[in-house]
Design a protein around this nucleic acid. Sequence first.
DNA 1: GACTGTTACTTGAACTCTCAATTTCCACCA
DNA 2: TGGTGGAAATTGAGAGTTCAAGTAACAGTC
Lengths: 174, 174
Amino acid sequence: MEYMKTAPASADAEEPRWLTDEEQRVWRAYIEAATLLEDHLDRQLQRDAGMPHVYYGLLVKLAEAPDRRLRMTELAMSAKITRSRLSHAVARLEKSGWVRREDCPSDKRGQFAVLTEKGQDVLRRHAPGHVDAVRQAVFDRLTPEQQKSLGEIMRIIAEGLQPSEAGADLPWLR
Amino acid sequence: MEYMKTAPASADAEEPRWLTDEEQRVWRAYIEAATLLEDHLDRQLQRDAGMPHVYYGLLVKLAEAPDRRLRMTELAMSAKITRSRLSHAVARLEKSGWVRREDCPSDKRGQFAVLTEKGQDVLRRHAPGHVDAVRQAVFDRLTPEQQKSLGEIMRIIAEGLQPSEAGADLPWLR
DNA sequence: GACTGTTACTTGAACTCTCAATTTCCACCA
DNA sequence: TGGTGGAAATTGAGAGTTCAAGTAACAGTC
């Protein structure tokens, strides 16, 4: 097994802290649900809106941003993806006409990703369907306590994995 | 916004059940944590063991199976991935020498994926590091109650998304 | 004003995943 | 025995992701 001791403890090697049976069950449940859910939402959005879930998330971030624009780095951090991935993604979204790039006046290296009208449309048209999918898969099945709990747990995990947990750098954010 | 009402309700269109503020916070926390976690584990395993997290999971399933072998369909279902994806994955794992295919005697269409010695080695060598990563990212940060809660919640979500929730088909499983 | 190190972003190649066929075989039934 | 429909697995092409460079521009320093 992956998470369980399979060989007898040896005297000279440090035995790793394997997961208990119960921990394994939790972890497997997590992996399965996360896999199924990502898959489900990807398919839903690909079918209805013609883009994967991550791309949809990028449009949403832009829609929420002041002036519907964000610096590439800012967008990448906020979506928790690498800049490289974002570069490719924005290239694609640009090709679809949902995002446009603009040069940053104050820093010639910088680029803004800007949500286009067409991008806003796509969001307006497909948000209801997507919300439905999320509701059906998650919120409709959980008690209020479970929802609260899920939020707390996921926030803790996210915090532990944040590269730095700060927009404290990024000079151009004042 | 993605999950929130942005336009005033119109009289003639059914207004979708948007997510509340609190629900949005939970959902975003989930997406962020899941993204960061998948990424983290993928990187850890790619660096240390030379394969992504899903592939590692496949080896684990095989290691746990009787005779360290599983029919392709069975493995795909258990890992919650499509058969097509599995075909490609096993091809790659075969190339790395960690898995080998074997014909199924009773059904000439069938194939077994079998974990090789080399595959078991890779698992033995890298399981401790992987367990550590999972511990550090998840279990060490959660109270026992939170762990239990996470398990329950993810089981509920997974159940809701299971294509059929049964190994009840699959004749060759008795 | 020319160095040095850093930041912002992009690029291309290798790899992985998805989707829509395609191939091969089984099971049933007339 | 010879269809017919479905199941098991694979394939190939296109899309997305990663990783390791690469380019360009900023910021300070001498």
